[in-house]
């Protein structure tokens, strides 16, 4: 049992190591990395701006009222916060969900290559925080924010 675990662990390190090299070597543009592999740098970023930049290649965002976030105002359990995002914008390429005060802000993102501009998931929140939903449409980034109060945190414990 122990040896098997050790194997999978080693394999995992080699694979993620390669992804990191590919991302930093500058051979691949950020958007291409996104399509090919899991955007590790964006998920590991501790700061919101940096995380957005690592995911979308830019942190320049404009506020938009066309993005709708459906989520509870107050979440009793931070481990499960249901979230639904939709927008009336056209040409939506990707949607990213960031929780400002989580240890790593990026919770999840999705690349849309045929699906409608809609995404739903359940996320964890460490404490009361603003959620930033970023929609990439026509090469531009749009943001909508919503603050959710959390009674019991869902990270760590």
């Amino acid at each position: 049992m122990n040896t098997i675990r050790r194997r999978t662990f080693l394999k995992g390190t080699v694979a993620s190591g390669f992804a990191a090299v590919a991302a930093t070597s500058g051979l691949l543009r950020p958007t291409e990395v996104m399509a090919a592999a899991w955007p590790k740098s964006a998920f590991k970023s501790k700061k919101l701006d940096k995380s957005i930049k690592n995911l979308f290649g830019s942190s320049k965002v404009t506020a938009s009222k066309a993005i709708k976030i459906k989520a509870p105002i107050q979440a009793e359990n931070g481990a499960v916060v249901p979230l639904t995002v939709s927008t009336t914008m056209s040409n939506v390429e990707a949607i990213g969900v960031f929780v400002e005060k989580n240890p790593s802000p990026l919770a999840t993102s999705i690349d849309l290559t045929g699906a409608t501009a809609f995404y739903s998931a359940r996320i964890k929140m460490g404490k009361t925080s603003a959620i930033h939903v970023i929609v990439k449409s026509g090469g531009k980034l749009h943001v909508a924010k919503k603050t959710i109060k959390v009674t019991v945190g869902g990270c760590g414990g």
Binding site: M34, A35, W38, P39, F43, A79, V80, V81, T84, V99, N102, S104, L106, A107, T108, S109, I110, D111, L112, T113, G114, A115, T116, F118, Y119, S120, A121, R122, I123, K124, M125, G154, C155
Partner: peptide, 23 residues
């Protein structure tokens, strides 16, 4: 045909439920 490609992080709840819409 691929319609969507989601990246999930550790901040997604356990037993994840993910939804998309396709027209």
């Amino acid at each position: 045909k691929e319609v969507a490609d989601a990246n999930l992080g550790p901040a997604v709840s356990k037993n994840p439920l993910v939804g998309i819409r396709v027209a």
